[in-house]
Lab assay of single mutants.
Amino acid sequence: LVRYRTISKIPQITLNFVDLKGDPFLASPTSDREIIAPKIKERTHNVTEKVTQVLSLGADVLPEYKLQAPRIHRWTILHYSPFKAVWDWLILLLVIYTAVFTPYSAAFLLKETEEGPPATECGYACQPLAVVDLIVDIMFIVDILINFRTTYVNANEEVVSHPGRIAVHYFKGWFLIDMVAAIPFDLLIFGSGSEELIGLLKTARLLRLVRVARKLDRYSEYGAAVLFLLMCTFALIAHWLACIWYAIGNMEQPHMDSRIGWLHNLGDQIGKPYNSSGLGGPSIKDKYVTALYFTFSSLTSVGFGNVSPNTNSEKIFSICVMLIGSLMYASIFGNVSAIIQRLYSGTARYHTQMLRVREFIRFHQIPNPLRQRLEEYFQHAWSYTNGIDMNAVLKGFPECLQADICLHLNRSLLQHCKPFRGATKGCLRALAMKFKTTHAPPGDTLVHAGDLLTALYFISRGSIEILRGDVVVAILGKNDIFGEPLNLYARPGKSNGDVRALTYCDLHKIHR
């Protein structure tokens, strides 16, 4: 019993810090008490220290592992850092350059016999395009090294910054494609005289377009951006097909006994025919423009016929181009109408809503002055909100995010209106959640004399007048207030005048 009563005193000691020596009952000389009392004092002292730490809000209350900052290894790049964003855009520009100039170089340097010394005699450094290609190869190699040090988000939505895990993730992902696209074939085969082989191998750079397509997928929600990307894709495919079309004609031209190829026909049409040795002929500019003209006309199913396939190889390629053109029509131009419709969806919704308003007016036989006010209010409210119901949009977000959005939407009023000066951010967040926005066209009466005042109004834009009878008592403008002081009276009061809008007004109100 003594032991039980001794232990039962522990909660009292913990909360009230009572010393055991003052209790005459606990001072009985028993061996059990002498053993338990020192333990009680020690526990009391420890609990006292913990309570003191909690009340003082000291940093040592938290466990040590929670006080440590997340460790980022040296030379690790955050995937959302500004440097990584700028670097990704730079790589994107280099990939676009590669997609345009690599097929052009591979096709127009394929057994090209233009006048001038061969590239091997001039030297590697004197070729501007080769120098640019070398810079692109170096940048792609540097990009691989950067990807080995860039964080990523795993399946659990955690940012991984450990170098080993980053390397394994990159090896399992895009490393092989990036490595093949970054191989400097110019340096590996330079001086061997195989410019045709170098041009063909350099087309491996186009593998990076797969990554670019995935990154550009984030802009699919913007109709104008999608339309622009589709047109660029169409032009890029036409450019690639033009390079292939020229390569076919250029390879067949020296081996044909009869002059029936499209390059021969082009030379005869523009007065620059090929001679018996295969030299001469149109310039590279004429060849490229004509090839691009043929691919565009074939892809769009126009086909004027002034550039036509004559050999079997050219006919087979033309059939493939027609098939590609039909697929592009289905996948690209078939979506253009939907994209344009999405661009004008706001206008369509406006006309639909206006039609419903006019049908309501016609069905209920609203008189002319009231009908005009109804239409003007709808037009003004639509121009202010673009038909978007803010309350319906915010309803799907958590309250903390709703408060931040409301604070942002009402920031101008909260910053410049005098009653809100000096208020804490928590108070402003709470008030912003209570605001209701209303609009009024010129001549609209917001409050009639004798109406119950259940709200306090803040003028965000425009001006109003307060009338008693036919006498203008006051004219209020931006950041002015009218209405009933909230919670100042037990019952809502009545208006002693009319409140009429002089201009288009936007008002925020808080109800009782």
Rank of each mutant, 00 (worst) to 15 (best):
Q341D: 09
A423S: 03
Y104D: 01
A449G: 06
L343P: 03
V307Y: 03
Y104E: 01
Y104S: 01
L343M: 04
T98H: 01
L230C: 09
Y350R: 04
N368T: 10
I284Q: 03
L67N: 07
K84T: 01
V393T: 05
S301R: 07
L327S: 02
T347L: 06
L200H: 01
I284F: 01
P128L: 14
V132H: 01
H408I: 01
V357W: 01
L279Y: 14
A235N: 01
V95W: 01
E314Y: 01
N310D: 03
K418C: 04
V131D: 01
L409V: 08
N275E: 04
G267T: 04
K418V: 09
P254G: 12
L414C: 01
K66P: 04
P254M: 14
M256H: 12
M139L: 14
S192N: 13
F185W: 05
T233F: 13
Q372W: 03
I177E: 01
Y293R: 01
F294L: 01
L428R: 10
S283R: 01
C126R: 01
K425N: 05
I166D: 01
A125V: 07
G278M: 01
T300W: 01
R74D: 06
G334I: 03
Y170H: 01
T120S: 12
Y288F: 01
D404A: 03
D178M: 01
W382H: 04
A182T: 05
N368P: 11
K66H: 05
E114V: 13
H264S: 10
L206M: 08
K111W: 14
Q68T: 14
M251Y: 13
L343K: 06
E121C: 05
I248M: 01
I366P: 01
L207F: 09
V336L: 04
W87V: 01
P398K: 01
Q372T: 13
A130D: 01
R165A: 14
Y65S: 08
Y80A: 08
Y246D: 01
A330W: 07
F228D: 01
F397P: 01
L207M: 13
S194T: 14
L394Y: 05
N386C: 10
F294A: 01
L92M: 06
I72R: 13
M256Q: 15
S105Q: 15
Q372R: 10
W262P: 01
E64D: 10
H439M: 07
F228Q: 01
F83R: 14
M139F: 14
F140R: 01
K436H: 07
Q379R: 10
L323T: 07
G303Y: 01
L200V: 04
I340F: 08
Y65C: 14
Q379Y: 07
A182S: 04
I77M: 06
L323V: 10
A430R: 09
A432H: 02
E221S: 07
Q379D: 15
W75H: 04
P103Q: 01
K272Q: 01
D143W: 01
F360G: 03
I198F: 14
V95Q: 01
Y329T: 15
V95L: 08
I183Y: 03
A181E: 01
L201N: 01
G271H: 05
A204F: 13
R214G: 08
E314N: 01
K425G: 11
F190L: 11
T438I: 11
T311G: 01
G261L: 01
L90G: 07
K418E: 12
W245R: 01
I332G: 07
G396L: 03
S220E: 05
A167V: 05
L263Y: 03
L134Y: 06
P442W: 01
I361P: 01
D137L: 01
C406H: 15
L413M: 10
Y274G: 01
P273H: 01
A106H: 01
A430C: 04
S283E: 01
L129F: 08
L279G: 14
R205P: 03
G334L: 03
T98A: 01
L145T: 04
W382T: 07
A432Q: 01
A167P: 01
S81P: 01
Q127H: 06
A99H: 01
S331H: 01
L446F: 09
A440N: 09
L67E: 03
G271M: 03
H408R: 03
R356Y: 15
M433Q: 07
W245F: 01
R349N: 07
S337Y: 10
T120Y: 06
A155E: 14
E196D: 14
G346K: 15
Q341S: 10
G164N: 14
V131P: 01
G278Y: 01
S412F: 08
P70Y: 04
M328A: 04
S345P: 05
D186E: 13
K287M: 04
K172V: 04
E375L: 11
L187T: 10
R214H: 08
H416Q: 13
A106E: 01
Q402F: 01
T113Q: 12
A392K: 14
A106N: 03
I366G: 02
L414N: 02
A69T: 09
E376Y: 09
L263E: 03
F435E: 02
K395A: 12
P398T: 03
S81N: 04
A155W: 09
M256N: 15
H169I: 04
H162S: 13
G303A: 13
H448K: 03
K285T: 14
L229V: 05
E158L: 05
T120G: 10
T76A: 05
A181W: 01
K272I: 01
Y288S: 01
W89F: 02
F171P: 01
Y222L: 04
L446N: 01
R165E: 13
G261I: 01
N265Y: 01
Q402R: 05
I405N: 01
K425H: 09
Y293N: 01
A204P: 05
V168C: 11
H416D: 13
T300Q: 01
G249S: 01
A330M: 05
H448T: 10
V447E: 03
N310R: 01
E376I: 14
I138Q: 01
R421P: 03
E114P: 15
R211L: 01
H364Q: 03
L92G: 01
Y124C: 01
T290R: 01
F333Q: 05
K436G: 09
H448I: 04
G426P: 08
V226D: 10
D217N: 09
R259K: 15
V212L: 13
P163W: 12
G193H: 11
I340K: 03
S161Q: 09
Y329V: 09
K66Q: 15
G116V: 08
D133G: 07
R74H: 07
L229C: 09
L227N: 01
H264Q: 03
E114A: 15
V100H: 01
L187H: 15
I135K: 01
T385P: 04
S313N: 14
I198P: 10
H73R: 12
G334K: 06
A423Q: 05
N386I: 04
D137A: 06
I177Q: 01
I91P: 01
G346Q: 11
K436Y: 11
I96Q: 01
